[in-house]
Simulated scan of single mutants.
Amino acid sequence: MFLLRSAFWLTIAFLVIRPGMDVQESAAALSSEAMARGSQFVAQQIDAIECDNLTCIGGKAVVSAALQSSLPAVHPMQMLAADNPVPLPRPRPDRAG
């Protein structure tokens, strides 16, 4: 049983960490695909709502406009850290000796 479990997890690890695979690119593609499918599902559910007053119609319009707007690009933490103009650790002041 131990050998069977080991072979299973080694196969899974090889499939996930195979040579030539860009993890960051594939994760970004998967994330954008999930967001697109999710917003499409929400838009379908909102369109299915039957409205009989002006407030409901306005609410549907606002939500559908918010779903169609593009989301800002998400930057990884490594890229955001480089934007800091102050070097860490900060240099000692001259008066400290």
Rank of each mutant, 00 (worst) to 15 (best):
S70H: 08
Q44T: 14
A66T: 09
L54W: 05
V62N: 03
H75M: 11
A36E: 13
G58C: 04
A61H: 05
L67R: 02
A65G: 06
A48L: 06
L67N: 06
Q78H: 10
I57Q: 09
I57A: 10
F41Q: 15
A36H: 08
Q45D: 14
A66I: 08
T55F: 08
A61W: 03
I57S: 09
F41R: 15
P72T: 00
E50V: 13
A73T: 05
G38I: 03
F41A: 15
A65L: 06
D47T: 10
S70G: 06
V42N: 14
I49F: 02
R37L: 10
A34D: 03
A36I: 04
F41S: 14
A34C: 04
L67Y: 04
C56R: 01
M77Y: 14
A48Q: 05
S70K: 12
P72D: 00
S64V: 07
Q68L: 05
I49G: 02
Q78F: 10
S39F: 07
A48H: 07
Q45F: 07
M77S: 15
V62L: 09
D52E: 12
I46Q: 00
L54R: 08
I46W: 01
S64T: 10
L67H: 03
E33C: 06
K60H: 00
V63I: 12
A61I: 06
R37V: 04
E50S: 11
N53G: 01
S39V: 03
H75N: 11
I57P: 01
A34L: 11
H75E: 14
V62Y: 04
M35F: 05
G58A: 06
H75A: 13
A36T: 11
T55E: 13
I49T: 02
V74Q: 12
A48E: 11
V42M: 15
V62R: 05
S39N: 13
S32R: 09
G58D: 08
V74C: 09
D47R: 15
A36N: 08
A61T: 09
Q78G: 12
M77G: 15
R37Y: 06
D52V: 08
H75L: 14
H75Q: 14
I57V: 10
V63Y: 02
G58M: 06
V42K: 15
Q45I: 06
K60P: 01
C51N: 00
A43Y: 02
P76K: 13
P76H: 12
E33F: 12
R37W: 06
G38W: 06
I46N: 00
P76A: 13
Q45P: 09
T55G: 05
L71F: 09
A73R: 09
S70C: 02
A48P: 04
E33T: 09
A36Q: 11
G59I: 03
D47H: 12
I57E: 09
S70Q: 13
D52Q: 12
S39R: 15
T55S: 11
A66R: 13
V63T: 07
K60C: 01
A43N: 02
Q45H: 12
Q78P: 05
R37H: 07
M35V: 07
V74G: 08
V62K: 07
F41I: 13
A48W: 05
I49S: 01
V62H: 04
A66Y: 08
Q68Y: 03
P76R: 14
D52W: 09
M35N: 02
A48I: 01
V42G: 11
Q45L: 15
D52M: 10
T55P: 02
R37I: 04
Q45R: 15
V62Q: 08
I57N: 04
A34S: 07
S69H: 07
G59Y: 04
F41L: 15
